[in-house]
Amino acid sequence: MSPILTISGLHKSFGELEVLKGINLTMQQGDVVSLIGSSGSGKTTLLRCVNLLEDFEKGSIELAGQKIGYREDGAGQRRRLPEREVARQRSMTGMAFQQFNLFPHMTAIRNVMLGLIKTKNMPKDEAREVAQKWLERVGMAARSDHYPGQLSGGQQQRVAIARAIAMNPQIMLFDEVTSALDPELVAEVLAVVRDLAVEGMTMLLVTHEMRFARDVSTKVVFMHQGRIHEEGTPDEIFGAPKTERLQGFLANSEI
């Protein structure tokens, strides 16, 4: 089976600072990969590169067999793809953000419908149906006419996940989706993510919820200083960490 996502030799710098120093990662359909590591290790940057929210200088990312973000011209020069093409490729991935980033001037259902109408060119009625279906899936059907300001953080995040996943992406990216939530709201969001994982959605997630990562992941990747330091099954990573760094990191995290 050909992989959904292939990241090879990915390098990314912010000015002088090299944050990703050659990342290689492959994901198959249905894989749930958790990126763990201390802040500054490059997890979020890696996720943002996959969604083309960040440029990267070297290496490549292939999504469903298609190189994204850049192409090589005849002379072997690397060029960024035009805006429209980048936008189209971006919609092949869905992203849920730490800060939800719902559009405050639209109701929950309009938030979900916007991408369906504008990117997928879906007729309004159909978009409304699809949006309603997904809001139902995340347990937000009853609040579809509420504005984000009228929803709790956990509810906003569930709407945001519905907005991303309604686009029917090849892969869902979750960027610390529970970090901005009050502790009592974390569970409802994790339940939604877990549901999606169980149903076979391909997901790449950055998380600080170690217990959750252990539960849902098919693979866990420990990043340190811009490199993949150790990777393996959840049992290998959490049960028998090999490197000292990972042992140290896990000792300092709540499990």
Partner: peptide, 18 residues
């Protein structure tokens, strides 16, 4: 306007104009 708004819009495939 928070930069997250632009990023969320991009992430659902909207172009700059949209």
């Amino acid at each position: 306007i928070a930069v997250g708004q632009t990023e969320a819009a991009k992430s659902i495939g909207l172009t700059f104009m949209q």
